[in-house]
Design a protein around this nucleic acid. Structure first.
Length: 517
RNA sequence: GGGCCUGUAGCUCAGUUGGUUAGAGCAAACCGCUCAUAACGGUUUGGUCGCAAGUUCGAGUCUUGCCAGGCCUACCA
């Protein structure tokens, strides 16, 4: 048996102080697409997501809700697990930072850093905002209405002076720069890499990595007074899931370093600066890539709680259907850029690309087979240059798509796939099998078989994006479940014909807009 | 204040190392087809490539300045 190559992809762990919204769904979806693609492409995949449950903010929210922190976390974390299931995400593990296994990993990482002399104890003093969980410099503060000091975000701040452990981040400028430059695409998109690079070149200050002001977190080893502050605790989750500190474990051996840490652009710095520095300091290889994606706007407007225009992924799916939403999110915007969600473009994508394009292609060809070939999948005979051109185009597509995936260009992948769909509709129109019905039934059969083959290959390729719908299409084509990996793309899985199919049913319904009265 | 990026058809964007009539998708108009989910195909309309100057035989593509927008970063009068 040959050993499968490994692929490890992670989402950030989501902070339980927030309820799941479109941004969470988007990040995880992008990872799901990669994970599913790699599995179909013969990789052994580890796809991790989870929740970040520690910190003062959670402690206070729980208190305000009259719950213990853990009870509070249990409830909110559950909503993220439900979202993952609802969105059909295929994560292999779901980590919670309140789990015992994580505490062990975080503490082991801490001890490793401390033993190697990268952490020291000192004092930290400054203006702190509980709401933002951040310190601000005096100069950054603004004046509130009553003349009191406020963070630039408008949050209240208090003067805090406490003992704190520090990580010697300042020593890593050179090594980090080297990591960005030598290894090529460690930070993507490139514009983000430039940002990170200029931040690092601007000089790094040591990082405060512990707190004594609250209790809800992982205790610092050998000094219970201190709780690990967010960075080491949260980021360590990527190691927890693969058994660190047991570096001999099969999982660790196989999956580290991670192939992609997918993050929103807001937390890029933690992943592209702090995290690789921690790892290198601990003598662990840094990840191969950190990818920062963009944000969604809603009908051209910035999304914010105060505007009340937060997009609920569950509501969206209930309105438009799961696969259309998954498709839309991956198709509408070059991944990495900000994108705009609008009802009109959602409907256009659903009705033009899915219902009118792919859905109709499947329906018109399968219906003809069902009605005119006695429900038996015809065989390809005497292929002409038109047929061959289509098949060649299909067979060549996997390679192109694979390249795009490796750069997280999901929209490009879908563009390539839907170009095939469009070519197929042109082919079908030009061949006009309904006219051949009377003049040359054998030729009609070939055209229909070629079209079915096109639907088969497109469905195979679309599985990572729309797992449910493509399964329906492949079922209609009677493709056995064990012949749906990318091995069977192209010649090897070619439809042979000669078997019965069922009466076809439309897979992508049109979205009919209700009257706005 | 520094640094980076963007500004190309109504909308979203491509435009390789500067090279001949600037492209695609969507939208719009018209035509064709009738197998199909009122779906599909074809044709057409549509741009002084943000503004100005410069380099060049030649610039959407390079340089400078300006305007507009975005992002990162900065302890300051």
């Amino acid at each position: 048996m040959t050993v499968k190559p490994a692929f490890y992809v992670t989402t950030p762990i989501y902070y339980v102080n927030d309820i799941p919204h479109i941004g969470h769904a988007y990040t995880t979806l992008s990872c799901d697409v990669m994970a599913r693609f790699k599995r179909l492409d013969g990789y052994d995949v580890m796809f991790l997501t989870g929740t970040d449950e520690h910190g003062q903010k959670v402690e206070k929210s729980a208190e305000a809700a009259g719950k213990t922190p853990l009870k509070f976390c249990d409830e909110v974390s559950l909503r993220f697990r439900e979202l993952a299931e609802f969105m059909n995400f295929s994560n292999d593990d779901f980590i919670r930072t309140t789990e015992e296994r994580h505490k062990k990993t975080a503490q082991a990482l801490w001890l490793k850093l401390e033993t190697r002399g990268h952490i020291y104890l000192d004092k930290y003093a400054g203006w702190y905002s509980v709401r933002d969980e951040a310190f601000y410099a005096e100069s950054e503060l603004i004046e509130g209405q009553g003349g009191e000091k406020q963070a630039p975000t408008g949050a209240a701040v208090e003067w805090v002076e406490e003992e704190s452990y520090f990580f010697k981040l300042s020593e890593w400028e050179e090594r980090l720069t080297q990591w960005y430059e030598d290894m090529g695409e460690t930070v993507l998109p490139k514009s983000r890499k430039n940002e990170v690079l200029s931040f690092v070149k601007g000089g790094l200050r040591d990082l405060s990595v512990s707190r004594t002001s609250f209790k809800w977190g992982v205790p610092v080893p050998n000094n219970d007074k201190h709780i690990m502050y967010v960075w080491i605790d949260a980021l360590a989750n990527y190691l927890t899931a693969i058994d660190y500190p047991n570096t001999d474990s099969e999982k660790f051996q196989k999956f580290w370093p991670a192939d992609v840490h997918m993050v929103g652009k807001d937390i890029l710095r933690f992943h592209a600066v702090y995290w690789p520095a921690f790892l290198m300091a601990a003598g662990i290889e840094p990840p191969k890539r950190v990818f920062a994606h963009g944000w969604w706007t809603n009908e051209g407007q910035k999304i914010s709680k105060s505007l009340g225009n937060v997009i609920d992924p569950i509501g969206l799916v209930k309105t438009y259907g799961l696969d259309p939403v998954r498709y839309f999110l991956m198709r509408e915007v070059p991944f990495g850029n900000d994108g705009d969600f609008s009802i009109q473009s959602m409907i256009n994508r659903t009705n033009s690309d899915l219902a009118g394009g792919l859905g109709n292609l499947a329906q018109r060809s399968l219906s003809m087979i069902f009605k005119n070939c006695e429900g038996i999948m015809p065989q390809m005979q005497d292929l002409n240059s038109d047929d061959q051109r289509m098949l060649d185009m299909l067979d060549a597509s996997l390679g192109l798509i694979r390249t795009e995936l490796d750069h997280s260009k999901f929209n490009k992948m879908l563009e390539i796939i839907f170009k095939l769909e469009s070519e197929a509709n042109i082919y079908f129109n030009d061949m006009a099998p309904w006219a051949l019905k009377k003049t040359d039934p054998k030729r009609m059969g070939t055209v229909l078989a070629v079209t079915a083959e096109i639907v088969r290959q497109i469905s195979l390729l679309l599985q990572p994006f729309m797992p449910d719908s493509t399964a329906k299409l492949l079922n209609q084509l009677k493709i056995p479940e064990n012949e749906r990996t990318f091995d069977y793309h192209g010649e090897k899985g070619r439809i042979k014909g000669g078997y019965a199919i069922d009466k076809p049913e439309g897979v992508f319904p049109r979205y009919i807009q209700e009257d706005k009265s």
